[in-house]
Amino acid sequence: MIKVENLYKSFGHLEVLKGISYEVREKEVVCVIGPSGSGKSTFLRCINLLEEITDGAIYIEGVKVNDPKTDINLIRTEVGMVFQQFNLFPHMTVMENITMAPMNIRKISKNDAEHLALELLAKVGLKEKAYNYPEQLSGGQQQRVAIARALAMKPKVMLFDEPTSALDPEMVKEVLDVMKQLALEGMTMVVVTHEMGFAREVADRVVFMDGGYIVEQEKPEIIFDAPKNERTKAFLGKVL
């Protein structure tokens, strides 16, 4: 589904990703953990080319993403992304936030788009907020809308960059519950997170990143209960 080969990324002289290779299979849920500044966000953002990559290759369903001949906008419609800061469009209602991309890119009718939006809102438990503006919603509600907005494009993969880090503790669960539900339905997901409980429960595989490398990747029960690498042990010792 996603295949990353020898990915390098530098910002000027700062080398952030130092040769990352890995693969995500269909319907797999991969959680990425690691200390701050280790390159987790950068790695995620490279997948849909929000960051230009310095070297290496990324394939999504066999199509090379960083090929000048590839239509990156088309790739992005297949890859949903959820941000730490939600990034809802403040000048649009919840409904318009969700229907904007399907109507403009998938060219579906307003009627169909609104039906789809209501379905997705029901799924994230926010049907009654369809005609509110983002600023009228709590952080947890906004993030659930952001998930619905990404899902409206019917992506094949969903990327989450610390989706609960900007939330008050009491709102974390409502967002994680939506994500668990998605995982159960068989969505392919890559989730950067500090929620170790979520990673342990939902992930098929946990990737530990440090200093621009993938240090270790294993099933959650192995990485949390019997990590092999010293750096993994040290990190988990601090956060668990």
Binding site: F89, N104, I105, A146, A150, M153
Partner: peptide, 24 residues
């Protein structure tokens, strides 16, 4: 983040400008 969210949905730069950035 507004531009990034718009691009991540598949909007082109100019679509994102017209629908998301300029109205705000």
């Amino acid at each position: 983040g507004q531009m990034e969210a718009a691009r991540s949905l598949g909007l082109t730069h100019s679509q994102a400008m017209r629908k998301i950035i300029l109205p705000q």
